[in-house]
Design a protein around this nucleic acid. Structure first.
Lengths: 148, 148
DNA sequence: TATTGTTATACTCTATAACTATA
DNA sequence: TATAGTTATAGAGTATAACAATA
């Protein structure tokens, strides 16, 4: 249908270009996150865990689901973070099988220090846009994220 | 300076929100790439290597630099891809120490199959935007990527 | 001497399968 | 029986240090 309508064709081609731009931008963003993490001996996943637990406490399973990882992977991930004093395991009050994970004071302090670094590392890229365009980009991204 | 000017303050706060949206979008994008990769037993890095080598041949060192990885990491990465018949090591004609890496016919075929899958997996997210907004987003991202 | 690539080593990340404890 | 979490295991990704071959 669209293939036979010349006016529709360009939209499809352009979607490829948008995907390409999105992927490239994502790799750049991930590189910055990786770099900031490396400064503090944190993997991307560890960094993410800290960010997630900054304002909530989650069961192992919920954390795994959130990250799209297997629960056995979470065990090791949390183990190492606990050993470093960044996270704490807490008994879940309502379910004897469950284990809640929460951020420790040290972990929270680290998370607070890390965040500005991410902003700083990404600012050269973001700074290529005018403030007005930055607002437009934010709006477009938030729409895609389902935040209306 | 900016801190004492109330009119400047909001721009800084909003940049935090933009960074947040950018990071969240990047994680979603990476999740899709990861998923597509997993369908073909390819890691994100392997997927990236295939994409890079689709239209060029690179020395090990250049490939490592491009990906931001150590050369020793490249050795293992290329080893596994060669073993699977996706890449080929070729003698560099001008430098006896160097090794060029190029994609194999099988690797190229796989890369071609994978690309549409990425577009398809990202299209629900992209589809939340109108075609006009998709074009705007693409332009903004390409500006950030330095493509003018 | 400097550069290119590989090897040896060690650690993290990841999933699968099997297990224990609780519901 | 089903769910939550851990353990055992195996493989991939990653970096550092030491090395061989070439420039």
């Amino acid at each position: 249908m669209a293939a036979s309508d010349p006016a529709e064709q360009p939209a499809v081609v352009e979607q490829d270009d948008l995907v390409d731009a999105l992927v490239q931008t994502s790799f750049l963003t991930m590189a910055s996150l990786n770099k900031v993490g490396a400064e503090h001996d944190l993997s991307l996943t560890q960094l993410r865990v800290l960010a997630i637990l900054r304002d909530r406490r989650l069961k192992m399973t919920d954390l795994a689901d959130y990250l799209g990882l297997d629960k056995s992977t979470m065990t090791g991930l949390v183990d190492r973070a606990v050993k470093r004093g960044l996270l704490e395991r807490v008994r879940n009050p309502t379910d004897g099988r469950a284990v809640d994970v929460r951020i420790s004071p040290d972990g929270a302090a680290l998370a607070e220090r890390v965040y500005p670094r991410v902003v700083r590392l990404l600012s050269p890229m973001i700074g290529t846009l005018t403030p007005a365009d930055q607002r437009r980009l934010r709006t477009l991204l938030e729409t895609m994220l389902g935040r209306h």
